[in-house]
Design a protein around this nucleic acid. Structure first.
Lengths: 133, 133
DNA sequence: TTATATGCAAACGCTTTGCAGTAGG
DNA sequence: CCTACTGCAAAGCGTTTGCATATAA
């Protein structure tokens, strides 16, 4: 199974489900998305509980959170190999890109300022070749 | 004065005001923030109009948009020297950082994929020195 | 047993939309 | 004059909160 949530005083079925689902996934996922997936699998978990569990995980540093372009909050388990996105401003097309240089730069900048437990998000946007001006 | 909005068919007082305010500012600003500033200056512009004008500017490629950690949409005039943020996950403290290396990397990655009119956002997060685990 | 977790429903904050009135060209 | 723009009010959408109920320990 998965690890219990560090700060949790009780380990419930619902929390285990959320944690297990996050463990399956590499990238960022929206809370509502996680909820829907669990429902589809017949797992009964309230949306509220998912939000609360995710918040707990973020506070515990187990999960990183960002915002999607559309405004949803996105969550991902920490310490996964991750990628960034190159997004077309016009058609929304998305390309996954990797950048070891940025990862290193981010860690360096953060530690220069005394920050620890460092994560980062990068998004590059522009006009893709299929969307002429 | 400022340039008219490229796609606009009419140039109104309200649009000029929004554009002028954006021109004054270097960083990202929330729509509501722009609205409040204009109201404080005695300029009468509806919040709706601000949102619609900003959307127009984004479509025209005059303005870049991101999301704040809190979920607000943030806007900034393009082609400004800009910085990125190093944010403490716990207390919210923010440090402005600059990274020529990232700027170059982003442009390179984008052009390798045929993207033009490239912009990017970067956010580094972690635990700041004043927030011990 | 009892404090914590759950889940519904209602509240919230930001953003978008419908529509009648206003004004640029 | 005519169509685009404005702005209010209301709807939309993701997220959070209040509160009664269920449950882990």
């Amino acid at each position: 199974m998965t690890q219990p949530i560090p700060n949790a005083t009780r380990n419930t079925r619902q929390r285990a489900e959320v944690l297990a689902l996050l463990a399956e996934t590499d990238g960022f996922r929206a809370a509502q998305d996680l909820h829907q997936t669990l429902r589809q699998r017949g797992v009964k978990v309230g949306l509220t509980t998912i939000y609360r569990t995710l918040q707990l995980l973020v506070d515990a540093g187990e999960v990183d959170a960002t915002r999607s372009h559309a405004g949803e909050q996105l969550f991902r388990r920490c310490s996964r190999t991750h990628h960034h996105h190159l997004v077309c401003r016009h058609c929304g097309r998305t390309v996954e890109v990797r950048g070891p240089a940025v990862e290193r730069w981010a860690d360096k900048v953060a530690s220069e300022h005394g920050f620890t437990d460092v994560g980062h998000t990068v998004e590059i946007f522009g006009r893709c070749p299929d969307c002429p001006a």
